[in-house]
């Protein structure tokens, strides 16, 4: 940054060391402020994310889960049984268009 300053300013700063010191302090303050803002921004983002995700979780996931359980819907098969646990997959080569999908 210093290198980009015009030559006149650099000479001026050189002549007046007090100004040079003040400049350093200001730069230090500004970089500290920037760092602080970053941390503040991150913390705020975490808090807002947590609030929004909590709403999604308790309303979206929660209500769906409760209703599904009322209708005895199982999302994971956790039951033991006497037969085989193998399930049909039959996965083989498909048309190339299907591989463009992420699902």
């Amino acid at each position: 940054m210093v290198c980009l300053e015009p030559l006149t300013i650099r000479l001026f700063v050189k002549r007046f060391p007090l100004i040079n010191k003040m400049k350093e302090k200001i730069l230090e303050f500004l970089s500290g402020l920037k760092e602080g803002q970053k941390i503040f921004g991150k913390n705020i983002a975490t808090i807002i994310n947590s609030i929004l995700l909590s709403i999604v979780y308790f309303i979206g996931v929660g209500l769906t889960s409760i209703f599904a359980k009322l209708f005895k819907k199982r999302f994971l098969d956790l039951e033991m049984n006497t037969g085989t646990y193998w399930e049909d997959l039959n996965l083989s080569k498909e048309d190339i268009t299907k591989y463009y999908r992420q699902f």
């Binding site: 994310n49 947590s50 995700l53 909590s54 979780y57 308790f58 996931v61 929660g62 769906t64 889960s65 409760i66 599904a68 199982r74 999302f75 994971l76 999908r101 992420q102 699902f103």
Partner: peptide, 23 residues
Amino acid sequence: FLKFERFLYQHLQCFPKSYKIFL
């Protein structure tokens, strides 16, 4: 997206115990 389906089903099955991991 298929993986996300499984992730979502885990939370639907395990609500509300999965709150922390969801966040």
